[in-house]
Design a protein around this nucleic acid. Sequence first.
DNA 1: CGGAATCCTGCGAGATACTG
DNA 2: CAGTATCTCGCAGGATTCCG
Lengths: 128, 128
Amino acid sequence: MDVTVSHAEADCRGVSEILSRVGDKWTIQVVVSLRLGARRFNELKRQVGGISQQMLTRTLKTLERDGLVDRTVHHSTPPQVQYTLTPLGHSLSETVRQLAEWAVMHRGAIEDNRLQYDASGKLQAFPT
Amino acid sequence: MDVTVSHAEADCRGVSEILSRVGDKWTIQVVVSLRLGARRFNELKRQVGGISQQMLTRTLKTLERDGLVDRTVHHSTPPQVQYTLTPLGHSLSETVRQLAEWAVMHRGAIEDNRLQYDASGKLQAFPT
DNA sequence: CGGAATCCTGCGAGATACTG
DNA sequence: CAGTATCTCGCAGGATTCCG
């Protein structure tokens, strides 16, 4: 591996990986939910809405593995498991918030563009 | 502004959508490549590396549809098609760059966490 | 050269049922 | 309550071939 390559390329792959991780269907919503405070499993499940427990488990495990969330088990009856963001997770959520702002700000423009594009005779060129 | 916490949920969906769009396997790399200037189809294909022409076509079409890139056809021989970022596309690329910086900065930490996690006896808990 | 059309495959992800 | 285990299906995405 040659370190001399313009690291823009190498960086790009790293970024893509992070974006893929963060850009999957549920990660963001879980992180956003956790930003507001610690949650338990079913609390998250309810708050995220639409997620299956399978995917919630996977998402949380991945996040835990990456050191973005913390998992704490309380051996009570009934058993409780608390999830919280780690500092690293918080810093990510901050960064994501900026992208979120961009999204909120330009969402309308994007939708307008789509309508125009679809109306300009390229309808069949875009199978939704 | 966004004093009311309630619409955070609606925003979240919008953000998820943007993130999904931007977080797919190729979009970012194409955008990053276009940040440096206009490109032609096969130029992009070479520069991105590993992308099939199918996916490049799709990615570009989606980006064009969203108003993030501009497509200009020059009817010469051989025909040339130039792709450039629109202002909207540039503004997105700026925002993404910040996420990119986060990624580059914390990539190491994340990988460390993974190694630790995998080494802490939960190996089989993580198939991949 | 810049695509479009077609075929094929693996993985993301939902539903359901079972366990501790 | 907090998961794990299967089964299934859709679709992102690769390879290949054809077209203007």
